[in-house]
Simulated scan of single mutants.
Amino acid sequence: MDISIVVPLYNEEESLRELTAWIDRVMQANGYAYEVWLVDDGSTDDSWAVVRELTTANPCLKGIKFQRNYGKSPALNVGFQHATGDVIVTLDADLQDSPDEIPALYRMIVEEGYDVVSGWKKERKDPIGKTIPSRFFNLVTRLVSGIKLHDFNCGLKSYRRNVVKSIEVYGDMHRHLPLLAKWAGFRKIGEKVVEHRPRKYGYSKFGLSRLVTGFLDLLSLMFVGKFGKRPMHLFGTLGTLMFLIGFTSSVVIGTTKVYALANNMPKTLVTDNPWFYISLTTMVMGTILFVTGFLAELVARSNPDRNYYLVEEVLDA
């Protein structure tokens, strides 16, 4: 199988026939062996009835239906599990992503050796209420992750097969698939300018809240990727540092009090100094962080996947 196309969908009954016909024309014109996984994320309209109709008419089309709405990331994850192609392409079902881009995305994986190729909607056909927050999000993600992409959230992407089989997409992590691939050891990540079309049917299912959740997911992913197997390195370091700052400050306060008594200076209580409470609070917080790191380390060591690592190649003469 040359290409597996994974299409997550939610209430997109109007666009499915046109989308699948368009995909089929592109695949036939290029002579690709292909499959399309239409993953219905608990639609409340007639999307699944349309999927049933389409899969009956075309054996290259396959469908998966969720019992309820779980989100785009779970839909992609299940689609990745079922995909069998050498290259996996994802695109949205709303016809804003053009299937005409698929051959170029495929060639960048097969001929140019990329692990992941992300689309860049350089000229977006969305209202300014979506484009401005998206640019800000992409800027921050680019700076934090070190991956030089302009559009992390573009649904049109292509992956080498072993990439999607090596990562788990959960929560709302579909925005950070290139970063997930990077953490899994796939470093050759490319970008291609793709056509972005105005929405033809329905309305966007995403609001401004995804900007907040996107940043929270990014922080979570950075933490898990760097400290997931060694949480004590983070919590222990922060806890020790805070405890030492608080302890040093309390020693200075105590020394100052002894010096004042020895030199018959005006008597004041240690508790009259606000730095006393700051030092005490800092030591308590440092201790809590250290204990948190210790407990997190115990949890990490009890994880059955603690010694699971992706091995690319073994040479055993």
Rank of each mutant, 00 (worst) to 15 (best):
D316Y: 08
S118I: 04
V252Q: 09
T240M: 13
Y309F: 11
L19C: 09
C154S: 15
L241K: 12
V26Y: 05
L105Q: 04
K122V: 11
A104F: 07
T131M: 04
R199C: 06
K182V: 03
D94T: 00
D115A: 12
I128L: 14
A300F: 03
F223M: 09
T268N: 11
F136N: 04
W22M: 05
M283A: 11
I147Y: 11
L211V: 15
D272C: 08
G63W: 07
T84K: 15
L149H: 07
Q28N: 13
D46E: 13
R68T: 11
K182L: 14
I23Y: 03
F223L: 12
L16D: 03
R124E: 11
A83M: 07
R25V: 09
S209I: 07
F136I: 12
I167W: 01
Y10C: 02
E313Q: 14
S4R: 04
P198I: 04
L177W: 00
F290S: 14
E191H: 06
A317R: 13
G207P: 02
F247V: 05
K205H: 15
K148T: 06
T55F: 07
G113F: 06
W120V: 15
G185M: 08
Y10G: 00
M27R: 10
D272F: 05
T287F: 12
K229N: 10
A57M: 04
S158H: 05
S158P: 00
L310P: 02
S4F: 05
W120N: 15
L156W: 06
M173V: 00
G146A: 05
L244R: 08
F137R: 07
